[in-house]
Design a protein around this nucleic acid. Structure first.
Lengths: 212, 212
DNA sequence: ACCTGAACACCGTTCAAGT
DNA sequence: ACCTGAACACCGTTCAAGT
């Protein structure tokens, strides 16, 4: 309980930004140890505080999980944005985006599982609104590309219908998400690389979107 | 601890088929209470045995979870088989199958989450082979339909290439799975019904598969 | 306002012992 | 072979108390 904060100027009682430190500690457990089944007490230990200090910043464990998941969604969004930044046409962008998405999942299996797993799906009843908003972060990038493709006339979508738009965007997201998740669980059923998966996407979802 | 087995002929010590009873108890917790975060002790309580009796039949909790998930995959397969039994052409069968899949998820959210969640994805390292085999059950039905469509010339797949086949089947499964999972977590982002989701699938995956 | 120590009601798992 | 009771090392959460 003392070695953990022996960095330089030991803060004896108040931590300064314990909230941030707890999120970082949880994030390191998820990304470094690849373990999303961490306990709140372990996070507190990592942050060098007592096991109930977190309750000053999160009313329950799930709130911390949601905060970690939100960081994950931001990272995923950044990866996608960086990937599409190097592209021109919308179909190229969509493919690059899907590839970045699949790679993110492959590189951060535990974080990806946390983002779409227990944190958001409460054991009973509906999931907290905060969790749903965090997840929408990732979808927005896909929506932008698809709308771009629609406006430029490259994709077969009618952009004046909001519900129709939602259907298409959701279909695309679901296809990429499903691939990511199932490949993490080794459900591919064959030795398929990320490029194999992308080719599958191209020949199904993309082919449906692009009428050529 | 006594009321639970006061049915007719009370079996005092040996249960008869405790293994089956434990799986059923867990299944009822998942499907009736819609709670996949049950404890092993609670399952034992439901079955009317001591909290460590399960260890005579399952070496750890995860083994019971896998058994429950396997039952879930069988039910999903049966639902799909029943749905395609009433169809003729392969494209019609694929759509009916996808609809049955989406409905199964919507009706059994907790079971579906268990099937694709914590049980199969161990906190660290690879998932047990037994868990992966159970999951393949569901994919087989999709594979059959797609191969049928390919052989009949209705789908744009070359059936003589096994890897190519795996790519296409996996793409289709991923699309349906992703939709099911994301809609359970209320990530649709709009009020989309199952028929809306199906339409999205039809215009993306199916359109890619069927060259017309 | 933020953190600690002791306490409560749970877990999963193990082990010696009973039938 | 199958089940029980007691025990161990954990949890998440609460509450009164300290700074």
């Amino acid at each position: 309980m003392s070695a953990a904060r022996s960095a330089s100027t030991a803060r004896p009682y108040h931590h300064g930004d314990l909230r941030r430190a707890l999120i970082d500690a949880a994030l390191s457990l998820v990304t470094e140890e690849q373990d999303w089944t961490f306990s709140l007490r372990e996070v507190a230990r990592r942050a060098g505080v007592s096991h109930n200090a977190p309750y000053s910043h999160f009313s329950e464990k799930q709130d911390l999980l949601i905060a970690v998941a939100a960081t994950g969604f931001e990272r995923l969004r950044d990866r996608m944005k960086a990937a599409i930044g190097r592209t021109k046409a919308a179909d190229e962008a969509l493919l690059a985006c899907a590839k970045a998405y699949l790679q993110f999942g492959a590189e951060n299996p535990a974080l990806y599982r946390l983002m779409f797993g227990p944190a958001l799906a409460a054991s009973k009843g509906g999931r907290p609104a905060e969790a749903r908003e965090a997840g929408a972060t990732a979808k927005v990038v896909l929506a932008e590309i698809i709308l771009r493709g629609a406006r430029s006339g490259l994709f077969a979508v009618s952009p004046d219908d909001a519900k129709d738009e939602a259907k298409i965007v959701f279909s695309a997201w679901a296809a990429v998400h499903g691939m990511t998740m199932l490949s993490l669980d080794e459900f591919t059923g064959a030795e398929l690389t990320i490029d194999d998966l992308l080719e599958g996407l191209e020949r199904t979802v993309l082919k449906g979107l692009i009428p050529r």
